[in-house]
Structures are given as C-alpha cells and as structure tokens.
Design a protein around this nucleic acid. Structure first.
Lengths: 154, 154
DNA sequence: ATGATCTCAACAAATTTAGTTGACAAAGTG
DNA sequence: CACTTTGTCAACTAAATTTGTTGAGATCAT
C-alpha cells in the first residue's frame, strides 16, 4: 500500500494552485521549486491533471497553471485517480470484481471494507482543506489520536 | 494504493492454514492448488511467513505448513507486514516521517489519517475471521453499505 | 536408503516508477 | 513581424519492483 512519488507530487502541486490567488496563473517552475519537484516530471503530471479537468493552463509569458474549478470541489481522491487510476486495486483488479475460493472467500469483503475506509479519508479532504491547513473534523480526529502516529514494529 | 499479488497470496495461504485442522500440516501443493497460486512463488512467501513467526513447517513425508499461533491472534496486517513491510508508505517513507512545505503542509496529516483508517480494517480482521467467514461488526458494516461497492467512475 | 517435502540462493522476464530530452505550439511584448 | 516565455507532447531511458522460475540441497518418516 504505497503512495507513489507521482501521486504525492500531484496532490502537492494541486495544493499550491489551491492556495494561489484565484485567476492568476502559477508558473510550473514556481510550483517545482516551492515543492522540490523535478520540473519536467511535474509538467507531465500537470498535463494529466488538465486532461482530467482539474487544472487549466495559460501559455506564453505570464502564463502558468490554475485550478479549473473551486478548491473546495476537488478532493485528494480526484487528484490521485487522475494520475494513477483507481484508488485501491488488488492484483490490478477492482475490489468488487474479485472472487476467492474456499478458506479465502471472505477476503473479498475485507478488500471492499479497506477501500471504503481509504475513500472515507481521501474523498473527504479537498484541496481547499489542505491549502487552508484545516482538515475535516472526522479526519482531524484521527490525526489527534496518538495511536495514529505510532510506527508498528514488525 | 495497490495490494500486490504477493500480499494477496500471503493472506489467502494463511487463511487456508487457519481453516485447517489444528496440528495437521498442509502441503504447499495443497495450498497452491486450492488458491491457484504458483507453487514456487508460494514457497517463497510461506518461508517469509515462517521467518515472521506466523507459520511453522514440518519437513519430509506428511510434512507441510501450519500456523505457528492461534488463528485469532494473527491479523491481516501482520501477514502483509511480514511479506511487504510497512502497511502504508509515501515515496518509501513512513507517514510520520514526512514534512511538507508551504501549501502542502497539511498533507502530512492526511497521510497519517489515511494510514490510521487502513489499520482500522487490516489490524482488526484476523485469519480466524476470514477462515470462519465472519468479519468483525465494524468491518461488516462497511461491507453492507451499498456505497462501498460502487466503482467511482473517473 | 529412499522418497516426499521444505530451504535457499540465484536468476530473469515483465512491468512500473521516476524521470529526461528535444522538437513544437501558443501567447504576449516590442 | 521577430522574439521570448511558457506550456505540449511523444519518445526515450535507467532503476526498482513485481512476479515469478530453476536447481541444488537439507531434513524427516518409514
């Protein structure tokens, strides 16, 4: 269960746009230096966000990238899906398409529940939330629980 | 956020052992055919589960694999950690070790909350639960919610 | 001893990840 | 118009990860 560099970069770049003055384009290079993201790679990512309708672009001098929609209407899940596809996959299949035999039959339900819990975080945090530094209460409750911060030693 | 074939195989193999008659070894080949897992790959995985103290082995004729501990004391999270390392990583780092700048500062908390929600499923389902086909109520509630089954169209 | 079974290191093909490169297109400025 | 700035895009690539396979060996019960 890993978040790739690409997905992480995408959310961070989108957060920068969410925090920018509305209507004023932010240059790719400004995003790259602010978030320490390789510029060329970032441009690939921003182009995918544009194709997904999350980002708008302006070419030429004084050009750059802008959010295509309001920061409160785009969730982290939207951004990740735009660059990586489905939020949760098991061996490349969506959880609801699996079927297991014998002793493992109930495992399919575990994956369904897992995806539901992943969604309940990623679909409830918007770019605006991140840019403002104010997460929804249901998410903040988890952050405030000391247990959430403990690394489980293997 | 994907579950690899290896992690999926590991949980399914462990579920087979959890469902077996206690004390009687199950042959690798029996697990492989029951769950449609390539035998050689499965043996690699079972060896890792043995090193993690989850599985016990018996060599020779009438040998095979057994759970080293009670099925109710091993969680899905334990099995996945044994073969894949930490449950949730962002760019190879644990969530609590991240720090972001500027507009993305709050993103670190999102990853913490995400891991907490992943754990609340995977650390609360045991191999016994899966083998019996009876998941904990908090997990089953999510499975019973029709929303959990909908594929989000991108 | 013998056959069944697990052990282990090494190898390897395919895929994914994380980028880089270079030619091009559009927008604004002088 | 020429020129600079910026995004667009396809193609390429190195490294890591995933998903296995192979073959020689160790161990156990009979």
């Amino acid at each position: 269960m890993r978040i790739t560099a690409k997905a992480d970069y995408a959310v961070r770049a989108a957060a920068v746009l969410a925090a920018a003055v509305p209507g004023v384009p932010v240059k790719g290079e400004a995003i790259a230096t602010a978030q320490h993201i390789p510029l060329n790679f970032l441009e690939n990512i921003l182009r995918e966000l544009r194709r997904a309708g999350i980002v708008r672009t302006q070419r030429g001098a004084d050009g750059g990238y802008l959010l295509a929609v309001g920061p409160e209407t785009v969730t982290v899940a939207d951004v990740i899906r735009a660059v990586e596809g489905p939020l949760a996959e098991i061996q490349g299949e969506r959880p609801e398409q699996l079927h297991y035999d014998g002793a493992a039959t109930a495992l399919a339900d575990v994956w369904i529940a897992l995806r539901a819990n992943i969604r309940s975080i990623l679909e409830n945090v918007t770019l605006g939330d991140i840019a403002r530094g104010q997460l929804p209460e249901s998410v903040q409750m988890l952050v405030d629980d000391p247990d959430s911060w403990k690394a489980r030693i293997r």
